[in-house]
Simulated assay, not measured.
Amino acid sequence: MRTTLDFIYRASGGLAAFFIFAIVALVFAQVCLNLADKIAAAVTGNGVGLTIPSYADFTGFFLAASTFLSLAYALRAGGHIRVTLLLGRLPKKAQRGFEIFVVTVALAMSAYASWYLILLVYESFEYGDRSSGMVSVPLWLPQLPVALGLIILAIALLDELIGLLRGAPASWDGKGESLLSE
């Protein structure tokens, strides 16, 4: 089970990296087209008007996908920002209880958000909602990786909660298993 869960977290992180690369490639292509248009305007006196239709919309969709798909991987790798000022002042037993409480609250919040985002994706699909850019995209397509990322985060938080309740150290404290150490 551990191997499967770690594979899911890594795959989600890999998909997030793919979407970041897609953002870079799309913006780079648009910058090259802008440069070619400026050169054409300087040479001929008229710009050609080269552009990637709705590239700003697509980069926004890719940013949302990369953000949410990276959440579980970042949690397991210790990449989330944690406020340790209070936690460091508590006794060890209270620290563990506080971590269990925080992970439980985070799990409830991510499960709640996952459920309603799944409903939103379904509603967008059912009603045929589309984006309003030059290239009209069915909205369920960019919403789907966001929902998937939240679902995987909820799974990672449940995994973390079970580990904490069994007495294992938190994955992010450097003493537990880390996705980055392999």
Rank of each mutant, 00 (worst) to 15 (best):
88 G>A: 09
135 V>A: 06
32 C>Q: 09
156 A>Q: 06
18 F>N: 02
79 G>I: 15
147 A>F: 07
3 T>K: 00
54 S>H: 07
96 R>A: 00
149 G>S: 03
14 G>N: 04
110 S>Q: 11
153 L>H: 07
128 G>E: 14
107 L>E: 07
173 D>K: 11
50 L>C: 04
46 N>E: 13
68 F>Q: 09
94 A>P: 15
10 R>Q: 12
14 G>Q: 13
88 G>C: 05
86 L>A: 14
102 V>L: 12
173 D>L: 12
95 Q>C: 09
81 I>W: 10
136 S>E: 14
60 G>F: 00
74 A>V: 12
179 L>V: 04
44 T>F: 13
76 R>T: 06
108 A>F: 07
29 A>Q: 02
145 P>G: 07
54 S>K: 08
28 F>M: 12
37 D>E: 08
81 I>E: 05
167 G>F: 09
182 E>M: 04
50 L>D: 03
98 F>R: 09
108 A>Q: 00
108 A>M: 08
157 L>A: 05
88 G>N: 12
65 A>G: 02
40 A>N: 04
89 R>G: 11
44 T>W: 15
38 K>R: 14
172 W>P: 06
79 G>M: 09
63 L>Y: 09
155 I>T: 08
34 N>G: 13
133 G>R: 03
13 G>H: 04
182 E>Y: 13
90 L>C: 09
73 Y>I: 06
119 L>P: 01
82 R>W: 15
59 T>E: 02
140 W>Q: 08
73 Y>L: 06
147 A>K: 03
60 G>M: 05
95 Q>P: 14
175 K>V: 07
157 L>F: 06
175 K>Q: 10
132 S>L: 13
127 Y>S: 04
180 L>T: 11
18 F>Q: 11
126 E>H: 00
155 I>G: 01
17 A>Q: 01
125 F>G: 04
18 F>H: 07
19 F>K: 10
176 G>C: 08
46 N>K: 07
172 W>I: 14
58 F>N: 10
124 S>Q: 13
46 N>G: 03
140 W>C: 08
23 I>H: 00
119 L>W: 01
153 L>V: 08
74 A>M: 10
22 A>V: 01
115 W>V: 04
73 Y>R: 09
23 I>W: 02
17 A>S: 06
171 S>P: 15
103 V>S: 08
152 I>Q: 01
136 S>F: 11
77 A>F: 14
160 E>L: 01
59 T>Q: 03
165 L>Q: 03
41 A>D: 11
4 T>L: 03
66 S>I: 01
76 R>A: 00
37 D>N: 05
75 L>C: 06
19 F>D: 10
92 K>P: 14
113 A>L: 15
35 L>W: 11
70 S>K: 05
5 L>K: 03
56 A>I: 15
116 Y>P: 06
108 A>L: 10
81 I>P: 04
75 L>M: 06
25 A>P: 00
100 I>Y: 01
62 F>T: 14
24 V>N: 08
18 F>I: 15
157 L>M: 03
23 I>L: 10
7 F>V: 15
80 H>F: 09
97 G>S: 07
67 T>M: 11
122 Y>W: 12
88 G>D: 14
89 R>L: 05
21 F>P: 01
108 A>N: 08
